[in-house]
Design a protein around this nucleic acid. Structure first.
Length: 425
DNA sequence: TCTGGGGTCCTAGGACCC
DNA sequence: TCTGGGGTCCTAGGACCC
């Protein structure tokens, strides 16, 4: 990358976007922590009831064609000797924070894009290739020294190209794409490798005979607009190697809070489904209260055993974040129509977010105090020290029994009659 | 032992109001 | 008294990301 001069011969600062992408993040964190996993194929499973999907896998496993998102079953077919490790989300969040702080030492302009990726924006007076490479090496060195983890770094003039570059040089690589090289860089890049072009769009483009970004450039933008609307226009630009050139330091306000859960087994036990719905509502409520948000749109997702799913949502004229209101509304949405098939997954989310409390006719101060007490006890003594009573049904049916203190929030009559009689030992 | 969980953004169609 | 058009809000669903 050349350093430019203006017409007076003064040195011009050059802005670069640096994409830092951790290599096989979850798996590498586990390997760094447990030396016996080093150099071996590792699958990190999601922290879920069914243990069915690979959340991340080590490079030793990737060699066999294993990818994250694959079922463990499929992964083991490709790589039978893989070691399966249960994920530790807190550990990854903590490591991610540490990496973020390391990046902030290089510039304040850091955007935490996801748990294992970040963008840096820097103004450099010497943006020569050597200098950029040196900068990338310093970032990699700092991260490695403090976390024992490797990352890949892509540098260019916008986020799209920087991200593609870091992806192409994985693992443990550095790739710099100067603005003047973008045309050439994109020419033979498969459209499926462009962030923003997913499997569906790839399929459509392939059907049009388009496989590489270079082919898109030969077609008019109007064709894409006609075929795919605004989305088509965006894709046309992405394939030209254009993209966002600003990093967003401040994380945007959240738009929704949600939790979903795939049951251990598909079920038509409505008491269990209600109990899970109650727990999910509780989880959503706790997070929203902790962060001080209220919402007025409840969205319920159900997935049936045949994998078909539906979402139903409802907007309310008041804002809330208490477990009971979320649960009651979610329940009435869910049971508005009869459920005839076995359920695989239940999900609840709350959107229509407002930060401040909106005065509501339904304000219930007693309940607010109660929730405050519940939240503070859970904060002090651990999650689920105190929880809505209806959650007990799931705990007793499906989870290892531990000493609990049930908290009844006025829903006693809704607790299934079978609840007491079905208690296992 | 087939397919997790957390999100965001966009679109299309209907209801409703003026 | 068979019927226009624009704007906005709501809902359901799909595509995409990590």
């Amino acid at each position: 990358m050349e350093t430019r001069q203006d017409s007076y011969g003064r040195l011009k600062m050059k802005k670069v976007i640096i994409h830092v992408d951790m290599d096989a993040f979850f798996a590498s964190v586990e390997q760094a922590l447990n030396p016996s996993l080093k150099g071996k194929p590792v699958f990190v499973s999601g922290n879920t009831a069914r243990d069915s999907v690979i959340a991340a896998c080590s490079y030793e496993a990737k060699k066999y064609g294993v990818k994250s998102g694959m079922s463990i079953f499929e992964g083991l077919n490709l790589c039978p000797h893989a070691i399966i490790v249960r994920g530790n989300p807190e550990r990854y969040i903590d490591t991610s924070r540490r990496i973020f702080h390391i990046l902030q030492r290089f510039t304040e302009m850091v955007e935490l894009y996801s748990i294992d990726e970040g963008f840096l924006e820097m103004e450099l007076d010497n943006a020569s290739y050597e200098n950029l490479r040196h900068l990338a090496l310093s970032i990699k060195k700092a991260i490695y020294q403090e976390t024992s983890l490797t990352c890949s770094i892509g540098i260019s003039c916008n986020k799209t190209v920087a991200k593609i570059a870091s992806d192409l040089c994985k693992p443990d690589g550095i790739m710099i794409v100067d603005e003047s090289q973008i045309y050439q860089f994109m020419e033979n890049l498969p459209v499926k490798d462009v962030p923003g072009i997913g499997p569906r769009m790839t399929e459509y483009l392939n059907l049009m005979g388009i496989e590489f970004c270079g082919q898109v450039r030969k077609l008019p933008v109007s064709l894409f607009r006609e075929k795919f609307g605004i989305r088509g226009e965006e894709i046309w630009h992405l394939c030209h190697g254009r993209g966002e050139t600003k990093v967003t330091v401040q994380s945007p306000e959240p738009k929704s809070f949600g939790h979903s859960y795939t049951l251990m087994q598909d079920t038509d036990d409505m008491n269990l489904i209600l109990s899970v719905l109650c727990r999910l509502s509780h989880q959503v409520g706790m997070r929203m209260r902790e962060e001080g948000y209220y919402g007025n749109v409840v969205c319920v997702t159900l997935r049936y055993s045949d994998f078909s799913s539906f979402t139903k949502r409802k907007t309310y004229p008041f804002w809330f974040n208490d477990d009971q209101t979320i649960f009651r509304n979610a329940g009435s949405i869910m049971f508005a129509e009869p459920i005839s098939e076995k359920i695989r997954l239940v999900g609840v989310s709350l959107s229509g977010i407002h930060k401040r409390y909106q005065m509501s006719l339904f304000r219930n101060e007693k309940r607010e105090i109660m929730l405050k007490v519940m939240d503070s006890i859970n904060k002090k003594y651990g999650t689920d020290t105190v929880f809505p009573c209806l959650m007990l049904y799931e705990k007793i049916r499906c989870l290892p029994v531990k000493k609990t203190h049930a908290f009844i929030f006025g829903e006693l009559k809704k607790i299934p009659n079978s609840f007491l009689s079905e208690q296992p030992e």
